[in-house]
Simulated assay, not measured.
Amino acid sequence: MNRKVKEVADLVGISVRTLHHYDEIGLLKPDAVSESGYRLYSPANLDMLQQILFFKELGFPLKQIHEIIADPTFNRTEALILQKNMLIEKRSRLDQMIVTINKTIQYEEGAIEMNEKERFKGLDFSHNPYEEEARKRWGNQRVDEANEKVQSFSQEEQQHMSNEWESIYAHLASLRDLSPSSTEAQKAIATWYQFLNE
């Protein structure tokens, strides 16, 4: 059954404007258009939208998502497995960071002692379990360039990154009861997004 754009927006929880934008940039074009000019999304379109939103949740920019799903070798099942593994890894890191933040709060309140190593547990930038996968999918050059940039950072710069990361996550944790669409939450996410891109 084909669905109109408003139905898809309500089903998924995104805006009609977002779907229009995805159509305009060629990321997700509806399989049909009604005689009245309405975009009509097929079940296959919904499958692809799910895939797009999983990638988006993992921080992939739209341009890169488009390149991935437009690749003739793209395999939906393989992508889902990759996304699941990335989300599990992300959840593990987030859980560890939440533990670190809670301990840091206790430390700041004088309730516990905490050494420097403990304060940065879960904030290790040196290990990337998906580097091999990234090399297979997007080539050595892109991965090498990213690694070279990180390795060029001095100890002080790496420390600064860890401190900033901790500050961003502490702020995000403090907003957990707000609506994701609130101005404050959106500003915090924008700060996080900019930090990740840098």
Rank of each mutant, 00 (worst) to 15 (best):
H20V: 09
F153M: 15
L196C: 14
A146N: 09
S182Q: 06
F153Y: 15
V5N: 04
D95T: 09
L87R: 08
I65S: 07
A70K: 12
T77R: 14
M161I: 00
K6D: 11
R76D: 10
S126K: 10
G122S: 09
R142C: 05
I98G: 04
A9Y: 01
L19D: 02
S179R: 06
A134N: 10
I14N: 02
A134H: 07
N163G: 10
S182C: 09
I189S: 01
L19A: 08
L40I: 12
F60V: 04
D47T: 05
L49R: 01
Y107F: 15
D23K: 02
K149R: 15
L87N: 05
I81R: 14
F74P: 13
L94E: 07
R39N: 05
Q64I: 12
M161N: 01
K4A: 10
V16R: 11
G59Q: 03
L27N: 08
E166M: 13
N102K: 13
N45D: 15
R176Q: 09
E133S: 14
L62T: 04
R3V: 01
H66P: 00
E57W: 00
M1A: 14
L58W: 06
L175C: 08
S15Q: 11
A32W: 00
E132N: 13
L80H: 11
W165E: 12
I105Q: 07
E166L: 13
E67Q: 15
L94I: 14
G139Q: 11
H66A: 13
L28W: 02
E156Q: 14
N45V: 06
I168C: 08
D10A: 15
I98N: 07
A190G: 06
F120P: 01
F125T: 09
A111E: 11
N163W: 02
D71A: 14
L196G: 10
L172H: 05
N45H: 06
I25A: 09
S154H: 03
Y41E: 01
Q96I: 06
P72C: 06
R119N: 05
E148V: 13
R142H: 06
A190K: 09
S174E: 07
N115I: 11
A32V: 02
W192S: 10
K121W: 02
K29W: 00
L82W: 04
L87G: 02
A70F: 01
Y107C: 12
A170L: 08
Q51T: 14
Q151F: 07
Q83R: 06
A70V: 01
F55H: 10
P180I: 04
K103W: 01
